[in-house]
């Protein structure tokens, strides 16, 4: 049998030969000192390469990498809080205007005069937006007139202070519900990861 090819030797070393092929190779090796030597040389080389000294990793290597990674952004809690505050403010102004009978624009102008012309311009813009919203609201009110009449009847029965308390309580319930939904979403993600 001719001597083994280099590829055959490496396949034998990698252990990928079939049982029959392996037996053929080993049978040849038993009778061929040249191939035995060739195999030994390559085994020594592979063994030496696999036991090369590992690179000495500095203790602070990972710290050095992490130091170059910017800090993770804070959760968007600030966005949620500021959005909720804006929603409370705008809703409170609108509800107060509806309950007291004062126009939304008039209410906003009173606030604007207190905070200067710049704020007044911004609030005027917001007022225009609210005017558009109030127009839409009137359309909704027309469609649900009976519900609003009942609400106004209740409002007439209680004082202005109680009206504010009722409006504030409604807003707190809405915001708490939103936060509880978000917490539930976060908890379900954590359970999924585990």
């Amino acid at each position: 049998m001719p001597c083994l090819t280099v590829d055959r030797l490496y396949d034998y070393m990698d252990g990928v030969l079939s049982a029959g092929e392996k037996e053929t190779v080993e049978s040849h090796l038993r009778g061929c000192p040249v191939c035995r030597c060739a195999l030994e040389v390559r085994r020594n080389l592979a063994g030496a390469a696999e036991s090369l000294a590992p690179f000495e990793v500095p203790e602070d290597f990972a710290d050095g990498v992490m130091a170059k990674i910017p800090a993770a952004k804070k959760p968007r809690l600030w966005l949620i809080v500021s959005s909720a505050a804006a929603a409370v403010t705008i809703s409170g102004i609108g509800l107060f205007a509806l309950l007291t009978g004062q126009g939304a624009v008039a209410t906003l102008q009173k606030i604007g005069s207190a905070f200067g012309s710049y704020l007044q311009s911004a609030i005027n813009f917001a007022a225009k937006g609210l005017k558009v919203l109030s127009m839409a609201g009137k359309v909704i009110l027309t469609l649900s007139g009976q519900v609003l009449a009942t609400f106004r009847s209740v409002a007439d029965m209680v004082g202005p202070e109680a009206q504010v308390v009722l409006a504030g309580g409604t807003l707190v319930i809405l915001i708490t519900g939103g936060l509880l939904l978000r917490r539930r979403q976060i908890l379900s993600e954590r359970i999924h990861d585990k």
Binding site: G47, A48, A49, L52, A53
Partner: peptide, 9 residues
């Protein structure tokens, strides 16, 4: 072996 490793590098 160590001599061979040095040559290997």
């Amino acid at each position: 072996r160590k001599e061979l490793q040095a040559k290997l590098e």
